[in-house]
């Protein structure tokens, strides 16, 4: 398979992730969709790395994983707190701040 196919897959995954952020209500699921976008990016990095024949992209993928892990820690902490206060994890319920 040519790297182009992987890039297409990466773009599709990224789009699915972005759409998921737009249509899902559960904060956890929204967050998972963002993670999906990050991983789609990883796939793109690795494919480009292969196309260019250098290792930069693969190294970057590791960095992204680390950052994503840190993001999970922070994100779950925030979502947990608000869930405990509100007894709901729907992102549509948090809309006191508006206009």
């Amino acid at each position: 398979m040519s790297p182009g196919h992987y890039l297409a897959l990466s773009a599709i995954l990224f789009t699915i992730g972005a759409l998921g952020v737009l249509v899902r209500r559960n904060a956890i699921v929204v967050f998972m969709c963002i993670e999906l976008m990050l991983n789609a990016t990883n796939l793109a990095f690795v494919s480009f790395s292969r196309m260019h024949g250098n290792l930069d992209g693969q190294i970057i993928a590791f960095f992204v994983m680390v950052v994503a892990a840190a993001e999970v820690v922070v994100g779950l902490a925030i979502i947990m707190t608000i869930f405990r206060t509100r007894r709901s994890s729907s992102v549509d319920d948090v809309n006191l701040l508006k206009y």
């Binding site: 952020v21 249509v23 508006k98 206009y99």
Partner: peptide, 17 residues
């Protein structure tokens, strides 16, 4: 136009997209 700011995070995301 301040009404565009609906308070829903998802609509903000939509405006970004």
């Amino acid at each position: 136009i301040r009404r565009i700011q609906t308070g829903f995070a998802r609509s903000y995301a939509l405006s970004m997209v």
